[in-house]
Design a protein around this nucleic acid. Structure first.
Lengths: 163, 163
DNA sequence: GAGAATTTGCAACATTATAACATTTGCAAA
DNA sequence: TTTGCAAATGTTATAATGTTGCAAATTCTC
C-alpha cells in the first residue's frame, strides 16, 4: 500500500490513480468504512491530476456524469475522504488533492506551484519537529498542523523568464 | 516600533491596540502609503482582540458606526493592510488578525486555539529553515509560506476536562 | 424480515469574496 | 488656480464556497 507521487515529472498517471483507488479500498475495508460509488467517484476525480480541485468542479463533473448531485453530495463525500485520510483540503485554495500518504494520520506539508498549480505533498520530519518545539515553547498543544508553501516548482522555474 | 503580544496572558490590551496603530501610522508614512480613516478603523477593529475577525464582522461594525459600507470597502481595506504587513489572513478560518511583527516582511506561524480562538503569531527561525530545506530538496522555490497550527492554548489546556 | 443506523436526495439558505463601473478625493504640474 | 491624473471610495450586482434540515432510500445487524 504505497503511492509514489512525482507530480513534477512525467509519470504514468493512470497507474497513480489506480493505486490510489486500490489503497482507498483497502483502507476502507480495513476500517469498516463504506467507500460507496459516489465517494469512490469523487476520489477518482480528485486524483485525476495533481492539481487541487474545487468542490464545485467535482460537482460539475458529477452532473456531467448524469449524477443528480447537489453541493452536500460533494461536501459529504469530501468530508468522508478527509476523515479517512484519503484527500487533503488546501485551505489557501479552497480545494482538494489526493493524499499521497493515505492511511497514515499525518499532517503533510504542501508545495503548491503558483504557475502550474501542481501540488506535492511531503512529510518533513524536521519541519514537524521544529513546529512541535515552537508550539511547546509557548505551552501550546498542537492538534492539527497545516503547512502550505506557495512558489514555483522545478519545471515552472525553468520556464520562468528569469529570477 | 515594537508590539509585545501576549494574547494568552492578561495584558493591557488598550496599549496593545494603541501601539499597533502607532506602528501602522509610522510604517505607512515611511512608505508613502495612505492610512485613510476607513483603513485605520478597520485595523483598529481587527486589533480589538487577538481573535481573528471575519470580513463581514468588520463590515457589521462599520455599518453600526454609521459608515455606509459594502463588502468591497472592507476587502479593499484588508488588502491594503495585508500588503503592508499590518494584518494577516488566517486561511483556515477565513478571518484576519493584527500582525504582531508589523513592518517586517515575514511569514509568521500561527498558534490558533480551538477553544478560545486566540491566535499567537510567532516567528520561528528553525521552522522557517526546515521548511526552506525541505522545499530546496525538491528544487521548489518557496515564495509564500503559510503555517497554521490549531490546538489548545495554555489557558484552555488547564480548563479542559483532561487529556 | 424488522428495526436501527448510515447514506443519499433535495431544497433552501448562509457565508465569503469579487467584478464592473461611476464618483470622489488628494496631489502635483501647468 | 485650475487642470489633470492617479488613488481611493461608493454602489450594485453577482460569483464562489459551504451549511442546515428533513425526508427517502439503502445497508447493516439481529
Amino acid at each position: 500500500m504505497s503511492t509514489s507521487a512525482l507530480p513534477y515529472r512525467p509519470h504514468n498517471h493512470d497507474a497513480c490513480v489506480a493505486q490510489a483507488l486500490a489503497d482507498a479500498r483497502a483502507i476502507c475495508q480495513q476500517r469498516n468504512a463504506r467507500l460507496t460509488p459516489t465517494r469512490e467517484r469523487v476520489l477518482e476525480l480528485i486524483w485525476q491530476s495533481h492539481k487541487p480541485l474545487g468542490a464545485y468542479d467535482v460537482l460539475a463533473v458529477l452532473t456531467e456524469d448524469g449524477h443528480n448531485a447537489a453541493p452536500p453530495t460533494v461536501y459529504r463525500a469530501l468530508d468522508f475522504l478527509q476523515q479517512h485520510g484519503l484527500v487533503h483540503r488546501i485551505a489557501s485554495l479552497n480545494a482538494f488533492v489526493g493524499c499521497t500518504h493515505a492511511g497514515k494520520h499525518h499532517n503533510g506539508m504542501f508545495l503548491i506551484c503558483r504557475s502550474c498549480s501542481n501540488v506535492l505533498e511531503l512529510t518533513a520530519p524536521k519541519v514537524a519537529q521544529a513546529v512541535s518545539d515552537a508550539a511547546s515553547a509557548e505551552a501550546f498543544q498542537p492538534e492539527d498542523v497545516m503547512i502550505e508553501v506557495a512558489g514555483l516548482c522545478p519545471a515552472c522555474r525553468m520556464d520562468a523568464p528569469h529570477d
